[in-house]
Design a binder for these strands. Sequence first.
DNA 1: GACAATGATTGGTC
DNA 2: GACCAATCATTGTC
Length: 449
Amino acid sequence: MDEQTRLMHSHTGVGMAGHPGLPPHMQEGTGGPDGDGRKQDIGDILQQIMTITDQSLDEAQARKHALNCHRMKPALFNVLCEIKEKTVLSIRGAQEEEPPDPQLMRLDNMLLAEGVSGPEKGGGSAAAAAAAAASGGVGADNSTEHSDYRAKLTQIRQIYHTELEKYEQACNEFTTHVMNLLREQSRTRPISPKEIERMVNIIHRKFSSIQMQLKQSTCEAVMILRSRFLDARRKRRNFNKQATEILNEYFYSHLSNPYPSEEAKEELAKKCAITVAQVLNCGNDPAVITADIWGMSSVSNWFGNKRIRYKKNIGKFQEEANMYAARTAVNAANASSHGSQANSPSTPNSAGSGGSFNMSNSGDLFMSVQSLNGDSYQGAQVGANVQSQVDTLRHVISQTGGYSEALTANQMYSPQGINANGGWQDAPTPSSVTSPTEGPGSVHSDTSN
DNA sequence: GACAATGATTGGTC
DNA sequence: GACCAATCATTGTC
């Protein structure tokens, strides 16, 4: 038995006597014989209302019409409305003021952080295009991965918003429909505006639970996408030959202190086509997609691994070191013969770096090459005597017949930079202090280290 | 498939 | 936070 029925039954039992909502003509005879008759009359009316659902449609319509035309209908209707409103208020009081669902809040926060909900943050194709442009055509693999990630995230975002709109539209339509229905019914049964409001809230709660499912699914999709993206990043890929050569050139030309600065790492990463820090969705938004530093971290990893493996097995790397020394020296000679040093590409940390390195002019190389002739290193002279270095190198090459064991025996690349503790010396390196190409204002981690 | 090479990760140190 | 050392896990070569 529903609430309305119960209320009506309780009232039919005791009658309407003394109720403040009853008009005088309904209260006057509560104690007399005429009052009993009217009580019976009200009882009959209520009984008819209660049994109306058991009747056929036609009968019910006829009965409904009769009841609507009944002389006591307005009074009785008012009383029922009042009773119901009071009851509903007490129910509402217990149900309202629900705290926000923490699960929903978590989902909302996550979707906001991932850039799925909230304002568009330049993601999607725009970010993908920016990433591709920033990579400058190099590091295509990584920028492609970024683009894919952004594109898929945008796809998720679009689906989410489309579905959300659908749900909102359906919710509004259903709410409007129910409200109209209730308003229509309020002419025949007691339905207060507050009850309609309550019903609307119930509908909204139901739809918000559907929305929560949508948000949950979206979060899961983003998580899966992200984990796949990270897995793809973790997957090891060997650097190509050119990249390895560039890194090796830098390493061996800075052998006395092979610690590239952040700028140098970035330059190396660019030059090696290892995608460098492409900050997607940057700005003041705290929910920035993690600024990607894998280009530089890869370079850092490479140097970390190289330092350790070189130190562990210097002999094994000796030949490699000599090879790079020779190559770099030749490059230096070629560069100098084609123009002054001022026109040569700047070192990574020089002001106005053009993005390419001239490893050839690093002090370590000159130190090594010159030491072969028994000359002490004099950085200032090095810059001015490039031709003599070329000659020296040619001499070395002709004497050794290439880079053979004899050269190795000369310790062309002695582990000079490694101190007794197994670490590299702190002494300032020629590359940073007296390097001909680096001005006094040049900042280099080699010196800082 | 074994093995070496190598990029990435992890835990510790400074 | 950068670095080292050890280790893992994948790739490339034979």
